[in-house]
């Protein structure tokens, strides 16, 4: 296996996450390798969102070590972590566009905050990203005027505006029609190919998994039940994994 030789871009060791007394994740180990598309699976409420938010320090892990780009994120200064964050794009479950500003301004936020680019350049960059997600004609609309799928695509445009090295998507295709969902997958594959992104996707959709997954992480009951490529997953002896690939649900 050539890929295994590569050094992990995100590595998680012994991660435990809790809400109050309730343990959501228990002693999780995981490596994510550059330029791979890693799919995280698991039934709803099993802690997928909690997992990625712990990795990205949006939640404080209860214990464990997380390294991103080889740096232990608990140890570094805030300014260095902010540098790291700028190389990570995140697509939230419901888009999380700022409701108080229109689509264009939303997508331009990272550019305005972290670069000194002139307005004309910012405008061009935003337009390119909007074209990429097929939303050229909603530039001036407010998030509340968009459908769920459009919000997600706009949010995707925002998350890739700084051309991040890592892209994390929380259920990008949930609630989308199959065609839009397929287009989104196409886009994810292109981002990987063109921009050499490392991509982590939380999804339930079997079709989507077939299209994009290099590696599958199956979460269940706070632990990683299975980790490996699609073929191995299909041949897995583990009942829950088998079930999922036969029926397409949990």
């Amino acid at each position: 296996m050539k890929k295994k030789v590569k050094e992990a871009i995100i590595s998680v060791r012994n991660l435990t996450a809790k809400f109050g007394e309730k343990t959501i994740l228990e002693k999780i180990d995981l490596d994510i390798f550059p330029e791979e598309i890693t799919v995280i699976l698991g039934n709803s409420g099993c802690g997928k969102t909690t997992f990625i938010k712990n990795i990205l320090r949006l939640y404080q892990p209860h214990s464990g070590e997380i390294k991103v780009f080889g740096r232990d994120v608990a140890q570094i200064e805030e300014s260095e972590f902010n540098q790291i964050l700028q190389k990570i794009g995140m697509l939230f479950q419901n888009g999380a566009l700022l409701n108080s500003m229109n689509v264009f301004d939303n997508i331009a936020i990272p550019l305005e905050q972290h670069t000194n680019l002139p307005k004309s350049i910012i405008e061009k960059m935003v337009n390119v990203k909007l074209q990429l997600v097929n939303l050229e004609n909603v530039r001036e609309m407010m998030p509340a005027e968009l459908s769920g799928g459009m919000k997600k695509r706009a949010a995707l445009a925002r998350s890739i505006i700084l051309d991040p090295t890592i892209l994390v998507c929380d259920e990008p295709s949930a609630g989308l029609d199959p065609i839009t969902s397929a287009a989104l997958d196409e886009l994810i594959l292109n981002l990987r190919k063109l921009l050499k992104m490392t991509i982590v996707v939380v999804t339930h959709e079997l079709a989507s998994i077939h299209r994009i997954a290099d590696r599958i992480i199956f979460l269940d009951d706070g632990k990683i039940l299975f980790s490996g490529n699609l073929d191995d997953a299909k041949k897995s002896e583990i009942e829950a994994v088998q079930n999922f690939f036969e029926v397409g649900s949990f």
């Binding site: 938010k53 700028q86 990570i88 794009g89 995140m90 939230f92 999380a96 700022l98 972290h114 949010a155």
Partner: peptide, 17 residues
């Protein structure tokens, strides 16, 4: 509060804001 529950706050943090 609305921004918090719609993950907008998290989104800001992810944009290093």
């Amino acid at each position: 509060a609305t921004m918090k529950v719609t993950e907008e706050i998290d989104a800001l943090k992810m944009m290093a804001i």
